[in-house]
């Protein structure tokens, strides 16, 4: 879980930064989208890099989800009977929403791919016109709302996931405890906010 999570986290960071290019205007953003499809050329052919990345991400998502499923099953089996007096939940909201948050994010990814990659659900749906595609989607209030909810879930997920992964990978220690906690918060806020800026800007008419 920790390793696949880390891979995805790295991807999200780059993805989020890339999204911000939208504020440089249509041309710049479309150019960027095009570039994504030709990274590594001429050493690599066409969109090879993109496909390679997609493959890695797919594997990461599948493994992440599989381990989540296995872990959940094991954990539910290890505690078959609940307390009749609800337990004190010392754990933060982020911890308690890992499972549901994960499901929300998974559903979102499917929608997101259909919207911007396959363009099946996109109202504009023009291949190569990334900027217009984005604007068309986020001009609809409920798409933006769904997007924002998913990003909040993502932030929470990262908040616990990052620091949990640090512990699983054994990089966590008493001395690093504070820094890791700060790191987890900063990453969570940065990524969630970074992603949310775009749809909000679209809805607010700052990007059109």
């Amino acid at each position: 879980m920790a390793v696949t999570g880390a891979v995805m986290l790295l991807y999200l960071l780059v993805h989020m930064l890339g999204n911000l290019k939208i504020f440089y205007g249509r041309e710049s953003f479309d150019e960027y989208a095009h570039w994504l499809r030709s990274i590594g050329v001429p050493a690599l052919h066409g969109a090879w890099f993109l496909w390679l990345m997609r493959a890695v991400l797919t594997v990461a998502v599948v493994l992440h989800a599989t381990s989540a499923y296995q872990l959940s099953r094991r954990d539910l089996k290890a505690r078959p009977q609940k307390y009749s007096h609800r337990q004190r939940l010392e754990a933060s909201y982020a911890v308690n929403t890992m499972r549901y948050g994960g499901i929300i994010i998974a559903l979102f990814i499917i929608y997101h791919l259909l919207d911007f990659t396959a363009l099946t659900l996109n109202r504009n749906g023009v291949e190569g016109a990334a900027y217009d595609n984005v604007v068309s989607s986020f001009s609809v209030w409920w798409v933006t709302l769904f997007y924002i909810i998913a990003m909040l879930a993502l932030g929470l997920h990262i908040h616990h996931g990052f620091w949990s992964a640090a512990r699983t990978l054994g990089v966590h220690s008493a001395a690093r405890e504070k820094n890791l906690k700060i790191g987890a918060t900063v990453l969570a806020v940065l990524i969630a906010a970074g992603f949310m800026v775009v749809p909000i800007a679209v809805l607010a008419g700052l990007v059109d």
């Binding site: 872990l71 094991r74 954990d75 089996k77 290890a78 505690r79 337990q87 939940l89 010392e90 754990a91 911890v95 308690n96 890992m98 616990h160 620091w163 949990s164 512990r167 699983t168």
Partner: peptide
């Protein structure tokens, strides 16, 4: 022994 996995909830240490 059938103990569950750790998801780092932190309940144990409290």
């Amino acid at each position: 022994e059938g103990f569950g996995g750790c998801t780092n909830t932190g309940e144990c240490t409290v």
